[in-house]
Amino acid sequence: MKTCLIVDDSKVIRMVARKILHELDFETDEAVNGKDALEYCTKSLPDAILLDWNMPVMDGMEFLLALRQLPDGEQPVVIFCTTENDMEHIQRAIESGANEYIMKPFDSEIIQAKFTQVGLL
């Protein structure tokens, strides 16, 4: 079973994403900000990370840049999942090492389509 770390400060978004990912046969864990996610990743790297951008303590972009510096940190597939839906944010995310980008609001079809595109399904 593939693993996905859901990183979002919204409890509701984490719950919705968890439900969709379980239906897609993923095992999930959760973090409420980039700092928690980075601590998680220093111990164990998931197959995928569903990553919000705007979070307190450490945002998604800071986390992504730090993750990619970790040993084997290039391995997890990172999919941003954020309300930031302008071209500049999307370009910056991809150039910074994100594998895909989901603009909120999302549904199970979008999650499935994006996870398929990056080869996780």
Partner: peptide, 20 residues
């Protein structure tokens, strides 16, 4: 719409061939 471009469209192609 945002919904339409997210169903199947790789983001790399979205930023290359679309304007918002």
């Amino acid at each position: 719409s945002q919904f339409e471009v997210q169903r199947g469209m790789p983001t790399t192609l979205l930023v290359k061939y679309f304007e918002k």
